[in-house]
Write a protein that binds this DNA or RNA. Structure first.
Lengths: 134, 134
DNA sequence: GCATGACCCTGTAGCAAATACAGGGGCACT
DNA sequence: AGTGCCCCTGTATTTGCTACAGGGTCATGC
């Protein structure tokens, strides 16, 4: 038996991923199907671990599964220009920037609303009033 | 016929909501079931319009449907203390603040990653390298 | 007087990105 | 042989909608 073969549980532990999530990635084409043991257990090789680590890092950075699929495909073609990689990362950064802007505007509105609350009764509540029409 | 009675389409237009979304709010207990016409059409009254406007404003401010359900219940009991309202709004603001902080850290990481890309070939790509394990 | 099209109805399925069972089988240790 | 942990498949749940499919109703035109 090869000692570098991993069960799904080992892979999960080493990447801080839930077992179900790993199966989910497989079903969705992010992680290739591993071979199976006689007992029908998934038998992972070091490459799987690398690929899953890649996926998890990209997820931590907020990339969508679609974007990660594309990044993985690009990283498998190491001779290509990495302009496409840059495009995906920059697009994602732009989305993050937009979210930040939107959330900051939102927070400003919440601040305004909450600061007016004098915590009396609901009938006089400025928060409810702000939300209510007219 | 009362001219203040509205069809679901009118309600949708006046609140910039999709018809399906209004039915969804009803099914999920945010909007009370209106009476029906002979033809089984929903017949809304001005109160429904007010309530739906409230929901949409709260959604625009990022409140969850659960939070909105709670806010609506509070706004229906106008004699109560509005401390509970303040608590919901403050909790939401804290969540928004956390999201902003998290996204700004994320953006900083993306900035670092993208700035290193010299757009050569994938094999030398710093973005792929950053994502790859070890 | 009916045809056309715009509107409405219910019910179901889909999206992201997992997470959580249910109901069963495998494996190691004692 | 029993205990307990791990693994398997398949389905349902989450959030907040959106998008049909397959029908019924209503207003307007001719």
């Amino acid at each position: 038996m090869n000692s570098s073969i991993l069960t799904i549980g080992h892979l999960a532990k080493q990447t801080s991923t839930k077992v179900e999530t790993i199966r989910f990635y497989e079903k969705n084409g992010l992680l290739p199907e591993p071979s199976r043991t006689e007992g029908n257990y998934r038998a992972y090789e070091p490459d799987h671990l690398n690929r899953l680590s890649f996926i998890r890092r990209a997820r931590d950075l907020g990339f969508s599964l679609d974007q990660i699929r594309a990044l993985l495909a690009l990283s498998d073609n190491r001779g290509q220009s990495c302009a496409a990689v840059d495009a995906i990362a920059s697009e994602h950064r732009a989305e993050v920037e937009k979210k930040i802007t939107d959330l900051m505007a939102l927070k400003a509105e919440l601040d305004r609303m909450i600061d007016q609350c004098e915590c009396g009764i609901v009938a006089d509540c400025r928060i409810i009033e702000t939300l209510s029409p007219k």
